[in-house]
């Protein structure tokens, strides 16, 4: 835990000095004086006049105007590229003719990369050129925001696919970014609910907690895999 509260009794206490929240006249003044780069450039004297339009004559082809469907596809692609799904509900708010548009999208040869995944709460669109199906599966679970289900589904999938046990800290990373408290609350429900009864927990020799699914592996094997990861080549190192 990098920025979490420090435990008592640590070797060194550090005094945090952070002036950024304080009202500081110099700082305010500085902010005021800071000019935007482009404004600053405008304000400087022109060195030479730009080239004339004649000098820029060109025979290069100009891009064709894009259709509505292509624009929508571009929007979805851009979001996929930034690791985001595009929820149907969010499109509905902005597109009155969404159903027709989606129908066109499906039939458009230029948009074959656009596909969707059905989550619990929504349908999510993404471009296969930029996002893998497996990531879309993870991202859809994250979007649905049902933590017990997300954790259970991913523990099962990891157990079956790799195979491996899943450490709790996996869910603290991108794209989950769950907090310890969120994970604990979810685990409580996983322990209680019948549909998650295959999800079991184990703790390695360096106190790292792992989950596995009894549908896919035995406790003994899951433990060996988890210990193998934590002990590694050089022995236990971290204990988060």
């Amino acid at each position: 835990m990098l920025f979490g509260p420090r435990k008592k009794g640590f070797a060194k206490e550090v005094e945090l000095t952070d002036f950024s929240q304080e009202v500081n006249e110099d700082k305010l003044k500085e902010e005021e004086e800071k000019m935007d780069l482009m404004d600053y450039l405008d304000q400087l004297d022109e060195e030479e006049s730009p080239l004339t339009s004649e000098e820029l004559e060109t025979e290069e082809a100009v891009e064709e105007e894009k259709s509505e469907t292509e624009l929508l596809a571009d929007f979805i692609r851009l979001r996929s590229q930034a690791a985001h799904l595009t929820a149907k509900s969010s499109l509905e708010k902005e597109e009155p003719e969404l159903e027709q548009l989606l129908e066109d999208l499906k039939n458009d040869e230029k948009c074959k990369d656009i596909t969707s995944i059905r989550g619990e709460k929504d349908i999510y669109f993404y471009s296969k050129d930029f996002m893998s199906d497996n990531y879309a599966m993870i991202a859809a679970l994250v979007e649905d925001n049902n933590l017990p289900r997300t954790i259970a589904e991913m523990v099962r999938w990891n157990c079956k696919t790799y195979p491996c046990a899943t450490p709790l800290y996996y869910f603290k990373n991108s794209p989950y970014f769950y907090t310890d408290a969120q994970i604990e609350r979810a685990l409580m429900r996983i322990r209680q609910e019948e549909e998650y009864s295959d999800i079991q927990e184990l703790t390695t020799g360096n106190n790292v907690r792992y989950l596995y699914s009894t549908l896919h592996m035995t406790e003994k094997y899951a433990r060996a895999l988890a210990e193998g990861v934590e002990y590694g080549e050089y022995g236990y190192r971290r204990s988060n």
């Binding site: 590229q81 690791a83 893998s132 497996n134 990531y135 899943t166 450490p167 996996y170 991108s174 590694g232």
Partner: peptide, 20 residues
């Protein structure tokens, strides 16, 4: 997990560890 990738190492104990 990275959006373009099909797989990742759930334990995180893998040396392609640069991540968002």
């Amino acid at each position: 997990p990275q959006s373009w990738a099909e797989y990742s190492a759930p334990s995180g104990k893998n040396r392609w560890s640069g991540a968002p």
